[in-house]
């Protein structure tokens, strides 16, 4: 843990003026990538993710095909200009790990038995990074999957929570992420109360972990409502155009 030059909580407010339980402004939209079967853009303050879904489509080489279930592949990547120091565009170890656990988190919500031998490719791109990028991307991926018509058990909603200056907070920004005592990324199927993604690091008591999970659930439920609203609005607009 690095020591921050400045305290992260002053008079009960965070460095960007938020209260501990306050989420940044969230924006969501669907369908801007015309070539994709489904796409979505989600931003939390300055953090912005675009996700495209292609498939289900034929999976090659053939030996990768599973006879009883379909495959989900995820690639998470950050644009070179998304961070302060230019990021090499080649996949790094962090991106490979995030891609792997995101794939598992989304697979948990998808009826993979509905498209045996085929693959659904999910491409996540971070346009701008200011903390909580993996969860912003999961929220967008879930919207993109739904708009691609992939059969799902539930939408997946995700958020980050953590501990800074002895205070439990939600939706960490970049600075908070760097200097936090602990941070945790959570994704869940809100209507089922099931967690499909969980990564935590830092130093927390068991009670603090459970309290943070509760906070994450509250935020995920709000994100879930926004996701449903975004999908409904998009669907309604298309109906009017007809």
């Amino acid at each position: 843990m690095k020591k921050p030059e400045i305290p992260l909580i002053i008079n009960g407010r965070r460095i960007d003026g938020r209260l501990p339980d306050e989420v940044r402004e969230i924006k969501m939209s669907i369908g801007e990538i015309l070539n994709a079967d489904g796409s979505a853009r989600v931003s939390f303050g300055n953090t912005e993710a675009i996700v495209a879904v292609y498939g289900p489509r034929a999976l090659f080489p053939k030996f990768l095909q599973e006879t009883d279930v379909g495959l989900v592949r995820v690639i998470y990547s950050m644009s070179p200009f998304s961070v302060d120091e230019r990021k090499n565009p080649a996949p790094d170890r962090r991106s490979i790990e995030i891609s792997k656990v995101t794939k598992e988190a989304l697979s948990a919500a998808i009826f993979i038995e509905d498209f045996p031998k085929a693959v659904v490719d999910v491409y996540e791109n971070i346009i701008q990074a200011d903390g909580s990028t993996r969860v912003a991307a999961i929220n967008a991926a879930s919207l993109a999957l739904a708009s691609a018509g992939i059969p799902m058990k539930d939408l997946v909603a995700a958020c980050s929570v953590g501990k800074v200056d002895d205070t439990l907070i939600v939706d960490l920004n970049g600075k908070e992420d760097n200097y936090s005592e602990s941070d945790m990324a959570v994704a869940m199927m809100p209507s089922k109360g099931l967690i499909t993604f969980l990564q935590m690091d830092g130093r927390l008591t068991k009670e603090e972990v459970l309290e943070l999970l509760k906070k994450a659930e509250e935020v995920c439920k709000r994100i879930y409502e926004l996701q449903k609203k975004t999908l409904l609005e998009r669907y309604k607009m298309e109906k009017e155009e007809e």
């Binding site: 598992e104 988190a105 948990a108 945790m184 967690i195 130093r203 459970l210 659930e217």
Partner: peptide, 17 residues
């Protein structure tokens, strides 16, 4: 000291609270 220092969910299933 029983502090939790890392957690990671693995696999394509889900976990309840």
């Amino acid at each position: 000291d029983d502090k939790i220092c890392a957690m990671q969910k693995q696999g394509i299933g889900a976990l309840s609270f």
